[in-house]
Simulated assay, not measured.
Amino acid sequence: MSWLNEVRKRLPFVQAKRDTPDNLWRKCPGCGEMLFTKEYEDNLWVCPRCEHHGRVGADTRLGQIMDAGYTVLPPPHVKEDPLRFRDTKKYQDRLRAARNNAPHPDALTNAEGTIDGRKAVVGVQDFGFMGGSMGMAVGDAFVAGVDRAVLAKCPYVIFTAAGGARMQEGILSLMQMPRTTVAIRRLHDAGLPYIVVLTDPTTGGVTASYAMLGDIQIAEPNALIGFAGQRVIQDTIREQLPEGFQRAEYLHEHGMLDMVVPRGEMKDTLAKVIDYMMAAKKAA
């Protein structure tokens, strides 16, 4: 300790230096404005200036949508690294690193509870876990969520966020596309609603399967939704794509979505949709 710090410590009228947290502010990915973190969180991770909807994890999403007291369903157990895949790193090392930074063991988490008093099973994909990619664990979790909804006789609501299938599992990841489609059929056979909420981003094999099979298709504002990337499409068809292509509002305008709903209105909207669809089921 320097003599100056020693003197400062002994003087009673000199205020001690306090450590300042380094996460008080964050930069909005949409408009670039610096936001007070607490204000951002209180606004459901939506920028109060440009209304950019930030990406959120599974626990945050479940807390925003479900009533207090919901139960997180146990994750499925699948064989890890079945192909012993390695690129610049071993797949097992990538999984370990992802789990060290996430509260759940894979990209899809299910919970059972209520949404404004309406019973539902809700699945949430976390883009923060290996880009929300769809592998065997995601497929098993999706099927388990549907089965739980059938058992509880309630809707299954899925919040999608994914870069597509998980390349480290090869064909086994692509097999989750028909698996999840068959599971949705079981839900329909039981006369129960399947509701999809597409969040930013939802792409690849997830878009090509369960993300586009909802009885009701909802999206958050400006969410990126598509199969192949915009540049790939543009280079393939050799044409300039329209402005806003693959964004939620464009897809809504062209009939691929039923509605685009801001995050602050999502819980109330889902409750109304569940009321309507379950009433139709009873009437039938």
Rank of each mutant, 00 (worst) to 15 (best):
I158E: 13
R148V: 09
E265S: 00
P82Q: 08
H252D: 05
E39G: 10
P201L: 02
L270Q: 05
Q230C: 11
M212I: 11
G123D: 08
F245C: 03
G123E: 07
A248E: 00
T202N: 09
R49A: 07
P262D: 04
V260H: 03
K89D: 11
G191V: 00
I237S: 05
S209I: 03
T180Y: 02
V146Q: 13
Q125I: 06
T160Y: 13
N5F: 09
G63L: 01
V46R: 03
R179F: 11
M259E: 10
V150N: 13
L187N: 02
L83T: 00
L4N: 07
N43D: 01
I216T: 14
H77S: 13
K281M: 10
R10M: 05
N23P: 02
R166T: 11
R99I: 03
G164W: 04
V157C: 11
K282D: 12
Q176A: 14
A137Q: 12
V146L: 12
A98C: 04
L213F: 10
H104C: 05
L4T: 14
N100W: 10
Y70K: 06
G135N: 11
L151I: 02
M177T: 07
M277G: 07
V7T: 08
P242L: 08
T180C: 15
L151W: 12
W3S: 15
A279V: 00
E169A: 01
D22L: 13
G123I: 01
A223G: 05
E39W: 06
G135F: 03
Q234V: 02
D200G: 00
E112F: 09
A219S: 07
K90N: 04
A102I: 03
Y194D: 09
Y276T: 14
R18V: 15
F227W: 09
V122G: 07
P155F: 00
K38T: 10
L44G: 09
I115L: 07
V273T: 10
G128D: 06
V196G: 04
P178I: 14
R96M: 09
K17R: 13
P105S: 01
M259C: 02
V122H: 05
I65W: 01
G244K: 02
G69H: 05
L24Y: 01
A223T: 03
S2N: 15
V78Q: 07
D19W: 14
H53L: 02
F129G: 02
K17L: 15
A161K: 11
G170A: 15
A149D: 05
D215I: 08
G139T: 06
G229I: 08
A223Q: 00
T199F: 00
T20C: 03
G63H: 08
K267P: 06
M136V: 00
R55Q: 12
R231V: 13
T202E: 02
D81V: 09
A280R: 12
D81G: 01
L251Q: 04
F85E: 04
M1G: 12
A68C: 10
C154E: 08
G163H: 14
E112A: 12
I274F: 09
F127R: 03
V143Q: 14
R185C: 13
T37I: 03
D235F: 01
A152T: 07
D67R: 11
E80Y: 00
D235M: 15
R10L: 11
V232P: 05
